[in-house]
Each structure stands twice: as structure tokens, then as C-alpha cells.
């Protein structure tokens, strides 16, 4: 694992990686809640097809970071680009940072799928309606085509027989898989997952993680905030550790979990291992 630093450096010089523009580029994101600065200039780049897992103690700013990407949360400094296109803020010709208009913002958000801890399905719509609503109304896809795609996605997450069910009739794990299908139906360029299994009963966690693992294998670019270290180890191309509103360390999962460079990560993993006896 000594060559991790070299790996990191080569990442910056390797021609194929550099020439391909990153799928996500966040730079210098700073966010205050009142007087409390919760993001202290976070920069993160995610390559196309890369699965990045974000770990870190509670309150370190992981959720806030994800929400800033598509401006669900406003932030005071920094900019974000998805596939080279700005989202939320852009820098104008005079170098001034400007907020996008609502219309452009809505259009930019189409490309970012986000799945929340609390599923957030629309309770007055069936599973199928939940999935096709935005593709039809936002992207203008014909209903028949949108429904066919929705059924494919439901098959992928193992919910073929549930398309006419209302969300209340589903288990948490099923709702969360519908939420994943709903986000995927927009054909996003990147998927964000915020502790999507932490509200689930332990026996339902596996089915949701399996769907996400499949997605990563299929080459989806994704950022996954999770406390599931085994998922991080098995699925992540890169693990990012956040603490106090900063990225403290990042690296390949093997390196992070076996030979962390910083004390903060060591402590965090030790506490985690003590708790879960891994």
C-alpha cells in the first residue's frame, strides 16, 4: 500500500484520466448554517463510472455536501460542475460567481439523481406513477416509452409486481428501491446516495445495497454516503473520509481500511470496528 500516494499522483498525470473531463467537479464549497461553518472549502472530483464512498462521523457535513451538489442546500462559496456543465452557481464573464436562474437550475438537476435516507416517494402516486412522472413531464418522454423503461428499472430492483402499489403498502426496503428506480428513470449522469439504508430494518439492508452494487458494476458514476463499511470495501473505487466540514483523507478502500494515513481515520475505524466487531 506504499504506492497509494503514487497512485494518487498518477491519477493526476495519467493521460486517459486527465483528458476525460470529470463527471463531477466540486471546488471550494463553503457552507454556513448561521454562524456555524459546516463545509470549509470542500473540493471533490469524481471520474466517469467511478463509485466514491463518503464516510465520516455524524455531523461532519456528508449530507450537506451531497445536498449542495444539486443546490437543495444553498452554499456561500465554491462551484460545482456535472459533466463540465455548471449546476447551481457559475462564474460569469467578469469572474463573478452567479446563481443560476430557476429554469436552468431545474434543467441541470435532471442530471443528478439523489436518493434520500427517508425515501421521499410521492405518497399520492403509485409506484409506477412515481417513476414516470418526471420523465414524462420534465423530459417529455412519451408515456408508453417511459412506462416500459420504468418496468425495466423495477425489474432491475426486483419489484416487478409492485407497480400499482401505493408507497404506504411497501416495506422500507421496497420503498427505497422504488426511490432508486425513480432517480434512475431520469437517466442521470451521477447518482448520490445519502445513507439510504440507515432507516431500514437490518434484514432489508441487503436488498438495497445489492441494487446499488449492481448499479456500480454497470458503470454508473456515484457518490455513496454510508456507514456500511463492507459496502465501501467491496464496491468503492475510492473512499473519502470527512470530518469537521473537510475531506481529511481519501484513497483506495484497501488502503483506507488497512493503512489509514491520518489518526482521525484510524480512530474512526477503530470506534466503528469496536462497535460492530468486524
Amino acid at each position: 500500500m506504499e504506492n497509494t500516494l503514487n497512485d494518487a499522483l498518477s491519477l493526476a498525470t495519467d493521460p486517459p484520466v486527465v483528458q476525460q473531463r470529470p463527471m463531477l467537479a466540486m471546488s471550494g464549497i463553503a457552507k454556513w448554517f448561521g454562524a456555524n461553518q459546516v463545509l470549509k472549502g470542500v473540493s471533490l472530483t469524481v471520474a466517469k463510472g467511478e463509485a466514491v464512498v463518503v464516510i465520516g462521523p455524524s455531523g461532519s457535513g456528508k449530507t450537506t455536501l451531497l445536498r449542495c451538489i444539486n443546490l437543495l442546500e444553498d452554499y456561500e462559496d465554491g462551484i460545482v460542475a456535472v459533466d463540465g456543465e455548471p449546476i447551481g452557481y457559475f462564474v460569469d464573464a467578469r469572474g463573478k460567481r452567479q446563481r443560476m436562474g430557476e429554469r436552468d437550475l431545474a434543467a441541470a438537476r435532471e442530471h443528478v439523481g439523489i436518493v434520500f435516507q427517508s425515501y421521499n416517494l410521492f405518497p399520492h402516486m403509485t409506484v409506477l406513477q412515481n417513476i414516470v412522472a418526471a420523465p414524462i413531464r420534465v423530459r417529455g418522454i412519451p408515456r408508453a416509452k417511459a412506462e416500459a423503461r420504468a418496468r425495466d428499472l423495477l425489474a432491475m430492483v426486483g419489484l416487478t409486481d409492485k407497480e400499482q402499489a401505493y408507497p404506504v403498502r411497501l416495506s422500507g426496503g421496497q420503498q427505497q428501491r422504488v426511490a432508486i428506480a425513480r432517480a434512475l428513470a431520469m437517466d442521470p449522469k451521477i447518482m448520490l446516495f445519502d445513507e439510504v439504508t440507515s432507516a431500514l430494518d437490518p434484514e432489508l439492508v441487503g436488498e438495497v445495497l445489492a441494487a446499488m452494487q449492481q448499479l456500480a458494476r454497470d458503470g454508473m458514476t456515484m457518490i455513496v454516503v454510508t456507514h456500511e463499511m463492507s459496502f465501501a470495501r467491496d464496491v468503492a473505487d475510492r473512499v473519502v473520509f470527512m470530518d469537521g466540514g473537510l475531506i481529511v483523507e481519501e484513497g483506495k478502500p484497501e488502503q483506507m481500511f488497512t493503512a489509514p494515513r491520518t489518526d482521525r481515520v484510524r480512530q474512526f475505524l477503530k470506534r466503528y470496528n469496536d462497535r460492530y466487531r468486524l
Partner: peptide, 11 residues
């Protein structure tokens, strides 16, 4: 609910 709708790109 607002967050979910916004994140799907709904105006």
C-alpha cells in the same frame, strides 16, 4: 417532498 420533486428536475 419538495426536495424529491426538485431533485427530479421539476420546475
Amino acid at each position: 417532498q419538495w426536495d424529491a420533486a426538485k431533485s427530479l428536475g421539476m420546475p
